[in-house]
């Protein structure tokens, strides 16, 4: 939010060690020559904070970069897995074809790959205020792959006229195991831990989904054109990771300089 940072940092205060150069009458001058005032420590502390903020706002205003590009798949697309449906076939269909490798167009644009940055970020507390629906629809989880941030909510819903048993796990540990009858209430739960969550339906075992949770906002899921976009990336050295549920990881080390606009073309396998 560059606007807010601008308000906070403009005008930025002078450094503490230049107090003597400030015009008579300013608060800095008054502080300098009245050390016995009880507010002196507070003023000095405020000065330190303002100097610190000026450094941060300098980074926030000037240093942010953008990483964007495409993820593609090269080669023959593996055939879908065909599953014979034995439960609720009247609704789910007698057979379902499961194709996690969604490739579009002659260039091989890969959909539903998660592109993210691994590394140390200057800020720790990122705002997170939206939720992520996990919808049981037509005996499949929609969307099948979700990227989310800690502090956000996941909302599990059922749009089907049959029972679903949505079971979300982080590793072996159950995060949420809930029954959802037709027209039942949605269930909302906050994501507190980063990691890879698996989503299954214990009733329809062919249903599968993935929820990848980060403790930062620098991730993006590729769209049907294979595009991804990471915005407001602070300068630094990172590892860019691309994850796909069946194709695995692609990684690339990046050194992001201030105000850069990097475009990448990443190709599986």
């Amino acid at each position: 939010m560059p606007g807010i940072w601008s308000i906070m940092c403009s005008p930025c205060p002078p450094p503490i060690n230049s107090v003597g150069d400030i015009n008579v009458g300013s608060i800095w001058k008054a502080t300098r020559y009245a050390p016995r005032t009880p507010f002196a420590p507070l003023v000095v502390l405020a000065g330190f904070l303002l100097v610190l903020l000026s450094g941060i706002c300098g980074w926030a205003e000037d240093g942010l970069s953008t990483i964007s590009g495409t993820v593609r798949f090269s080669g023959a697309v593996p055939p879908p897995t065909i599953v014979n449906v034995l439960k609720d076939p009247e609704h789910c269909g007698v057979q379902v074809a499961i194709q996690p490798v969604k490739v579009h167009g002659p260039a091989g644009a890969l959909e539903s790959a998660i592109v993210s940055l691994e590394g140390t970020f200057p800020m720790k507390n990122f705002p997170a205020n939206s939720d992520h629906p996990v919808v049981n629809a037509q005996c499949a989880f929609t969307p099948r792959v979700i990227g989310a941030q800690t502090g956000q909510d996941v909302e599990v819903r059922n749009q089907d006229p049959i029972l679903h048993n949505t079971h979300i796990k982080l590793g072996k540990r159950t995060f949420l195991n809930v029954a959802q009858v037709p027209n039942g209430r949605p269930i909302i739960k906050m994501l507190k831990q980063p990691g890879h969550y698996s989503i299954k339906c214990d009733k329809h075992t062919f249903m599968e989904g993935h929820l990848v949770v980060f403790n930062h906002p620098f991730f993006s899921i590729t769209d049907s054109s294979g595009n991804f976009h990471l915005a407001q990336v602070p300068p630094g050295t990172y590892q860019l990771q691309v994850w796909h549920e069946t194709l695995g990881y692609l990684t690339q080390n990046l050194n992001i300089v201030a105000q850069s606009d990097l475009r990448l073309d990443l190709v599986y396998p």
Binding site: T166, T174, A179, K203
Partner: peptide, 16 residues
């Protein structure tokens, strides 16, 4: 509450 670690789910929301 359901039985975590098994397929027995929680019906808390459905019976709310």
């Amino acid at each position: 509450t359901g039985l975590d670690g098994t397929p027995m789910p929680s019906y808390e929301a459905q019976l709310q």
